[in-house]
């Protein structure tokens, strides 16, 4: 694969409509799977108080921060209203042979 792509996990490590955490190079990422088997990746920490989003609840394409219920659309990183107002950074993803790759950095 071209440079910058990282093998993050097996796609079956993530349940449908769910999220898991992943660390690489000291950086926390959150990996998402939708009900219709699409995969997304964002920064792993909430932009509000640096809490791990992988402990939060996924509803459709929204991830809710576990601490204060700040909401983000994980398909594009958009903050969906207070208390969060800073968008999440997103990363490209690709599925190959049952594994999820992300383009970090």
């Amino acid at each position: 694969m071209e440079e910058g792509w990282i093998d993050a996990c097996a796609i079956d490590d993530i349940e449908e409509e769910d999220v898991i955490g992943f660390e690489h190079g000291g950086h926390a990422y959150a990996l998402y799977r939708t009900l219709d088997d699409r995969f997304f990746c964002t920064d792993g920490l909430c932009t509000h108080e640096q809490v791990h989003l992988c402990d939060g609840l996924v509803m459709d394409t929204i991830i809710e921060c576990p601490k204060h219920n700040g909401r983000f659309d994980f398909t594009n990183g958009k903050a969906k209203g207070a208390p969060v107002c800073v968008d999440l950074k997103t990363y490209e993803t690709e599925v190959r042979d049952g594994r999820l790759f992300i383009k970090a950095g």
């Binding site: 402990d55 939060g56 576990p66």
Partner: peptide, 11 residues
């Protein structure tokens, strides 16, 4: 721990 309680409490 937050990671154990947050999701189910939200539900």
């Amino acid at each position: 721990q937050l990671s154990d309680v947050a999701r189910d409490m939200r539900i």
